[in-house]
Write a protein that binds this DNA or RNA. Structure first.
Lengths: 352, 352
DNA sequence: ATGAAAGCGCTAACAT
DNA sequence: ATGTTAGCGCTTTCAT
């Protein structure tokens, strides 16, 4: 019985190795996994014969027997985004280094919340650990995950009872606004998240809080017409910028909650002949790899580093059979480029 | 014996379901997997009890017993790139839809070719199928992979004996150059791959061939000083553009083999006050999500679609126990934006 | 249509 | 330090 996909030459099993090395399967297992209580000579002999036979343990068998999968699963809302794929890249590198298999699950664009999190029900026995990236299971989900003995760490969205790697988003908002205020701007617009957020995403709320705090400290407030939803996408940012420019008294500076939205804002500005950095200032968040291409001022976060940190936290929890619940606050940093500048004249889009 | 990571409430096994439903485990297995020879009434009863008990088959057990893993692995040179993460995103969506687990392996930046492909030796028993994205195993590797009964499909780089999804890269080069020639340019520069390519990447060769063909048809040749290596990175593109602008007679138009390199070229031009679209024309390849932001003319390929197509091909091979070896030639399309324009004056960077 | 039973290839307890 | 052995939870013949 030969599959058309390949030959039938059976791969060696642990028993073949045991036979060839003249020891028991248990000894082979111990020797190969570096467990104690194996004579050095035995260990090297086993290793050599295994290598000679090109033996590889069958992960399915070892997972079944051990009840562990040596697999990490990263769950992201979508892979079609610089932010998420960069987090994934950071996590993948760490997992590969520690010899963990790396599964990725994209939650897609399912409308219903229930369906949204359905994949989380499938993870058991597939994975020892979960990295949730801006994904917030509800209380029942979280409890269920925890009770199943799956280690979890999160990036971005905090989940009660699980460790997280995240930036101080209030501080992000504050830094951005203070930069604009320091340049003399006092009518500051904001391009934020979405009005109704299916994912319970609280980053926008926190950044907005930072905005309000920073403004309040200088006796300023944020009027409603200076806030537009940008949906964390390029197009959303473009539309939001249109709204802001069209309002009664347009802002002289704009803070977009992500670089991608800032890119959209840039497009709108270009289309209208508004010179960003002169007629209007613009600052984003992330330090997207293309921000330097358009010379965008931004609040940098080390996105890949955050993913790596979450993976490291997860792996250390798994290997030490320990639960962490603390937050790692990741570094952020203002990167000033040419899209922000001193307030020049009243109004926008007025040629000097 | 309670793990600190979770409670010990045992999850139901197939035996529990069998007991509860009053049938044998074999029947449960058949019923749940939709196999024939199960009475409709039995099937629904089994399904109901399984659902009520929140039973999920243990994948490790089923993989061990069946010898299949229902897992697809995508292998990419790196995840830190728009192109690769977009291919991955496309493939992931398809695999999730077909209920395949989705492993991703980044080959990292290992110098040695041997180490480069080492992960491919680890895939057996972990995965039923492999999607190789711009990854070319050597002859021995490929043969070994094939002999192990692992289904394979590739994106980009062809591998003899495996089906691929790729664009016609000669045509890509031709389209780009013809566009520039049609605009009146006759000194065309090229920002290409790397001088020494560890990965055996033949995309640059093919695109260059297209360039040569298109030029030859109009009686033109490509002089060496009009070719610079851009390494498929932003920085590489920036440096290459510098080289091109600094050469004796700079080109009036430049074709970058990827949008990312074109972005770097854009940076260099901006830094030197060269107005792209007027003083010099620039065209890239990909239609990167960011290209519309800088209004870059490009030869579009549907990157996510390519990843999805490769995944579909793979899954169909696996489910039908069949080997395909044909190539799917993916669509490409010229997208004209503002970075290319008619030849205006002799020389570059000369204000009108 | 259903059941009994023999593995699948490991790990881990328990012996020695 | 090493061996024996009983599972892990499924799938898959082979009976019935």
């Amino acid at each position: 019985m030969e599959s058309p996909l390949g030959s039938s030459t059976r791969r060696p099993t642990i028993e073949d190795v045991a036979l060839a090395a003249g020891v028991s399967v248990a000894t082979v297992s111990r020797a190969l996994r570096g467990l104690p209580n194996v004579a050095v000579s035995t260990r090297s002999r086993v290793r050599d014969t295994a290598a000679a036979m090109r033996y590889r343990p069958n992960p399915a068998a070892s997972r079944l027997a051990a009840g562990r999968s040596r697999t990490v699963t990263v769950v992201v809302p979508t892979l079609n985004s610089w932010y998420f794929s960069t987090v994934v890249a950071g996590a993948e590198a760490v997992c590969a280094e520690s010899d963990y298999d790396f599964l990725v699950v994209g939650l897609g664009s399912a409308d219903e919340r229930a369906r949204f999190f359905a994949p989380l029900n499938q993870v058991e026995h597939r994975t020892d650990g979960l990295i949730l990236v801006e994904v917030r299971p509800d209380g029942a989900q979280a409890a269920s995950l925890r009770s199943r003995g799956i280690a979890i760490s999160t990036v971005g969205a905090r989940v009660e009872g699980f460790p997280s790697v995240r930036v101080d988003d209030v501080e992000v908002g504050r830094i951005a606004i203070e930069h604009l205020l320091d340049l003399g701007h006092d009518r500051v617009g904001v391009i934020g998240g979405m009005p109704e957020d299916p994912m319970n995403f609280d980053v926008p709320k926190l950044r907005r809080q930072g905005v309000l705090d920073a403004l309040a400290e200088r006796g300023l407030a944020l009027s409603d017409d200076l806030v537009a939803a940008g949906n964390f996408s390029i197009d959303g940012g473009a539309e939001a910028m249109s709204l802001l420019l069209d309002c009664g008294r347009p802002p002289t500076a704009v803070f977009a909650f992500s670089d991608e939205m800032a890119f959209g804002a840039l497009m709108t500005a270009a289309a209208r002949g508004v010179r960003v950095g002169r007629d209007i200032s613009l600052i984003g968040v992330d330090d997207h790899e293309f921000s330097r291409v358009v010379d965008l001022t931004t609040v940098r976060q080390r996105v890949a580093w955050n993913g790596a940190a979450a993976a490291r936290a997860l792996i250390s929890m798994m290997s030490e059979q320990r639960i962490d619940t603390f937050d790692q606050i990741a570094p952020i940093e203002l990167v000033v480029r040419s899209t922000t500048g001193h307030l020049r004249s009243e109004g926008t889009a007025t040629a000097p």
